[in-house]
Every structure is written in C-alpha cells, then in structure tokens.
Amino acid sequence: MAARQGRLGSQVDIPSFFIQILNSIQYGLLLFLCASGLTLVFGIMGVINLAHGSLYMIGAYLAFSLSEHLGSLWLALPVGVVLAVVFGAVLEWLLIERLYKREHLHQVLLTYGLILVFEELRSVIWGDDVHGVSMPPLLAASIALTDTLSYPVYRLWMSGVCLVLALLMAWVLLRTRLGMIIRAGSVNSEMVQSLGINIGVIHRIVFAAGVGLAAFAGMLAAPVSSVFPGMGNQVLIICFVVVVIGGIGSLKGALVGAILIGVVDTFGKVLTLEIAGVKILPELAGMSIYLLMAVILIWRPEGIFGKVRS
C-alpha cells in the first residue's frame, strides 16, 4: 500500500538516460570480466577463490606502477597481463593445487588468508594512498551527445575490449581443442586424464587465465575508478553476487548476472525513490544488488543458468 504512494523520480532525460544505459553496460561488462575468472575456476576446478578480488586490486596497482614506469597504459596493459598470468601460475603451483581435493571450508580459509597477505603486501609496496592512473591521450577525449552532455571515449573503448574478450573466451571454450578439454575436464577429470592429457597443466592454465582476467579487469578500471586500498574486496563480493545470480560455473550466467547488476547498481544510484516520506533511493542503492540476489534466490536458488542439483 505504501508503495502506491511512492514517488519514483529522477533528473533523467533521454540523453542522460542513454548515458546511464551505457554506464550500466560498461560496468556490467567489467564485472563480467572479473566474475568470469571466478566462475571458471570454480566450474572447472571446484575451487572457490576468495582472493580473486585481491588479484583485481593487484591488476589496478600494476596499471598504476607500470604506466608510470613505462610511460603509457598501452605498454602497461600487456606487460601487466603477462606478469599476472605468471603470478597466477606460480600461485596455483604453490598453493591452489593443494586445494582441489579439499573441502570448500579449507579453500575459503586459505584464500581468505591470501586476501590478508595481498592486502598487506599492497600496503607495504604501494602504501595506503589513493592514486590516479592517467588515460592514454588517444582515449582521453569525450564524445558530445548534446550541448551539455558528453560520454568519455575511454569508457566506450573499455566496453569494446570487454566484449571482445567475452567473445574470445566463448570461442576458446566452445571452438578450440583446449576449450573442449577444459569443458570435458570440468565434467570428468579422470576421463580426460585417461586420454593422456595432463589435467594438472589444464588446471594451471585455467587458474592463470582467471588471474589474468581479474588483473586485466583491474587494469582497465584503474583510470576510471582510481586505485585504492580495499578495492578488491568490494569487487569480490559483487562478483559473488554476479555468480550466485547467474549460476556458478556458467559463463553465460556470469554475463547476464553482471549486466543485471550493472543496470540495477547504476540506476539505483541515479534514481530517487521516496516512499511515504522516507527516502529509499539513492540512499539504499548499496543494498539494491543484494536485494536483487535475494529475489533471484527465492525464484531460482541455483541461479538463472545454474544446473539444478538432483
């Protein structure tokens, strides 16, 4: 009843609505990039990696340091991705490999410990200040939409890169021999091994790729969001929500979940909603994505594209 009296309003006209749609998609695609690593690692190795957000943070800080030393984000991106992938492979070899046969509880514990380690190492190496990362001049411009409104090119470019990567991932998984082996390995690793394929190598590749994706997402986001302590944990929890909504292990689910969250989060922050004199939005925008998750859980506890457990 109270909701009937609610007033949903905004200062949104058509061009700014369009801008918010673009923002939603851009944010969603970035989340997808990050969440896809999480969901692939779980779907294929059965490991829940809480430190995934920290790797996003490490990526952002790498973008900060490398672009200062190398002089440009263009150089920082490839170097950073290579470093992240190597780091991921070493991490898998040292620690993650030992978790495959263990309970989720121990996976949670170990990777939670890693969060503390990474966060503190970040403090030791980079300090606790907020840093900005400059955009490449080529992308620093804005496209004018109306006389007063414009949209930054960098964000468009970012969405484009995320989209290309999403398609690339789908292509690798669905069309290549490696992708076939990965998919088979997620269903039955013994079977894959009996074909003479070293499943350990496959796991290392997937984990390293997941780390690379998270770090790359962090690097892409750095010029927009700046780099700051705790940025990884924020992203991690949102990635969890993405995965829960989309269904764990499903790339398609991660994409749909990420876009949904992009829309809900973006519009939650720009719309205003008052119910019976109480301001709901944007005050409660921080909660909106969790409410979305709760609704999805009631409707489909296994996520939109999750497999129904028998």
Binding site: F42, I48, H104, V108, I237, F240, V241, V243, V244, I248, M287, Y290, L291, M293, A294, L297, I298, P301, E302, G303, R309
Partner: peptide, 18 residues
C-alpha cells in the same frame, strides 16, 4: 538455506554485506 555448498558460503557473505 535454499542453497548449499559454495553457494551457501557466498550468499551468507553477500547478505551480511547487505
């Protein structure tokens, strides 16, 4: 409790965060 396993871990975390 509609979820189990790793979902349960993630959902409890997310709701507490809410």
């Amino acid at each position: 409790l509609r979820t189990t396993g790793v979902y349960f871990i993630m959902v409890t975390l997310a709701l507490a965060q809410m």
